Simulated assay, not measured.
Amino acid sequence: MGAAGLLLCIAHITGCLLAAGLLGRSALPWSYLALMANFFLVRQSIATPANLLLVAGLIAMPPLLRGPPPDLQALVVIILIFGFGYRFSRRLQGDHTRLELLASLDALTGLPNRRALEKALQQQINGARENRFRQALVVLDIDHFKEVNDRHGHAAGDAALSDLAAILHAELRDNDKVFRFGGEEFVILAETGSREALAGFSERIRNAVFQALNGPDGRITISLGAAMYGGEQHWQDWFSRADAALYRAKSEGRNSFAIADDLP
């Protein structure tokens, strides 16, 4: 819930402490609800110290929990609610993290998907200026992929996509990232530093796929379009330059690459 959740959490703590000071033990049930609710309003890293602050405030009021006589039942209830809330929110946060990971992966190839790509590109554009201009975007797809599907069925097409994903993953360096953008199209985000290095990188990827990717009719090739980051404010503009280069590579016979900086 972000800022709204944080404000509600603060309101819960403040309201419960004020109510406890004015109404005494009759206000404790509201504190139980606040302890549980806070774990679902904000991140666990915030809810835990916030709830500890609330509990400490309640204990600091002598007539409330410390007696005389001490209200052991209320103390036990508070401890149980705090423990259950902490454990449940921790499990919920773990489930949320796993779901986010699954939502960012392509089911067929296991590569990060378009959603993950868009997030990564936006992070690059928002990153340090000196690092941005060393980054390159390579858009590639399988040549004549529709023919593979039409002649041999979707199983053969899926196998080609999976094999291509494995080849790309094996060829990339530690800091490079590859994504499945959709259909037969893949995107690589790599740090190359210059147009010349990008050309060498693109040729290496093209040749690796040419040597290793095979289908029912023999070799399967790819075409690539590449673009160094050129100061774009929006990742879509950067992607469009690389995509235009891919179109040029395909129009010139496929099984080749083109660099956006070389286009007229």
Results as ranks from 00 to 15, higher is better:
Leu65Tyr: 02
Asp163Pro: 03
Arg134His: 12
Pro62Lys: 06
Ser162Trp: 07
Ala160Thr: 11
Arg98Gly: 02
Gly83Cys: 03
Asp158Lys: 11
Ala47Tyr: 05
Leu41Gln: 09
Leu22Gly: 07
Pro69Ser: 09
Ile79Met: 11
Gln135Tyr: 12
Gln73Trp: 12
Ser31Gly: 08
Asn38Glu: 06
Ala56Cys: 12
Ile78Cys: 04
Ala160Ser: 12
Cys16Thr: 08
Leu121Ser: 04
Ala27Asp: 00
Leu121Lys: 06
Ala156Tyr: 05
Met61Val: 10
Arg151Ile: 10
Leu101Gly: 14
Arg151Asn: 13
Arg87Phe: 12
Leu41Tyr: 07
Gln122Thr: 13
Ala56Val: 12
Leu64Phe: 03
Phe84Leu: 10
Leu121Gln: 05
Ser104Phe: 01
His144Pro: 03
Ala56Phe: 12
Gln93Phe: 08
Arg87Lys: 14
Leu41Lys: 09
Leu58Asn: 08
Trp30Cys: 14
Gln135Ile: 14
Ala120Lys: 08
Ala50Asp: 01
Val139Trp: 01
Gln124Gly: 15
Leu64Pro: 01
Leu80Phe: 07
Lys146Gln: 06
Ala160Cys: 14
Leu111Asn: 01
Pro63His: 03
Phe145Asn: 06
Leu111Phe: 01
Ala47Leu: 11
Leu33Asp: 00
Trp30Arg: 15
Leu80Cys: 12
Gln122Glu: 14
Pro49Gln: 11
Leu22Glu: 09
His154Ile: 07
Arg132Thr: 07
Asp163Glu: 15
Ala103Trp: 01
Gln44Asp: 15
Arg129Met: 15
Leu102Cys: 09
Ser162Arg: 14
Ser45Asn: 12
Gly94Met: 14
Asp141Leu: 07
Pro68Ser: 12
Gln124Ala: 15
Glu130Lys: 15
Val148Ser: 05
Cys16Gln: 07
Ala103Cys: 02
Asn131Ser: 15
Leu117Ser: 01
Ile81His: 03
Ile142Asn: 01
Ala74Lys: 07
